[in-house]
């Protein structure tokens, strides 16, 4: 498995690689000698849109690493009893609130785009799985309908969240 590399296209190769051979084979099949098929070994018709899959997956992993890192730093500061005096870290945490949601969506995009053109891998292609008696107009109607509903509810959610935060925690009765 390659942990870090800079990809070049002409000629196609990776430079500055940091890798542990056999790790991905072990993770996927429980056997360090198992063969992991490269993307170039699949027929062109079975390859998902690569750019979106690559970017969303890698950014999800980057965010995950970032969460681990700031948690380790904060745990260390907590142990040293200086966490609540480290203003920059506390501010960073506040600004990081939306990031898990972003990571979640990126992972979802990677899974949904990355499994194309299959809807059930090896059995059924997305193109074969569509409803033949639902028109494009009807699909558009439902997408617009739910798009509006979710934007509305999302907006209200943020409005209520900000209100609650500004309101502050309730003082306990002493």
């Amino acid at each position: 498995m390659v942990f870090f590399a800079i990809p070049f296209t002409k000629p196609p190769e990776l430079k500055g690689t940091l890798e542990l051979p056999g790790l991905l084979s072990w993770m996927a099949f429980g056997d360090i000698n198992a063969h992991i098929k490269g993307i170039n070994e699949f027929p062109a018709a079975d390859i998902p849109p690569l750019w979106l899959t690559f970017v969303s997956f890698h950014n999800m992993v980057v965010l995950g690493m970032y969460f681990i890192l700031i948690t380790i730093v904060a745990s260390y500061k907590l142990w040293k009893k200086t966490l609540y005096d480290t203003r920059w870290l506390l501010k960073l945490f506040i600004w990081s609130i939306p990031l898990p949601l972003a990571a979640c969506q990126l992972g979802w995009i990677a899974a949904e785009v990355g499994r194309q053109p299959w809807i059930v891998y090896g059995l059924l292609k997305t193109a074969q799985a569509q409803s033949i008696n639902v028109s494009a107009g009807e699909i558009l109607f439902s997408i617009v309908l739910f798009g509006i509903i979710y934007l509305l509810l999302g907006g209200l959610y943020i409005y209520l969240l900000v209100r609650e935060v500004k309101h502050g925690p309730q003082r306990a009765n002493v």
Binding site: S131, N133, V134, E138, F141, S142, F146, I149
Partner: peptide, 17 residues
């Protein structure tokens, strides 16, 4: 579920609200 598509979408919207 495909034949009653629009009806089901309206049902879902109503249940969400």
């Amino acid at each position: 579920f495909s034949g009653f598509y629009i009806a089901l979408m309206l049902l879902l919207a109503a249940l969400i609200f």
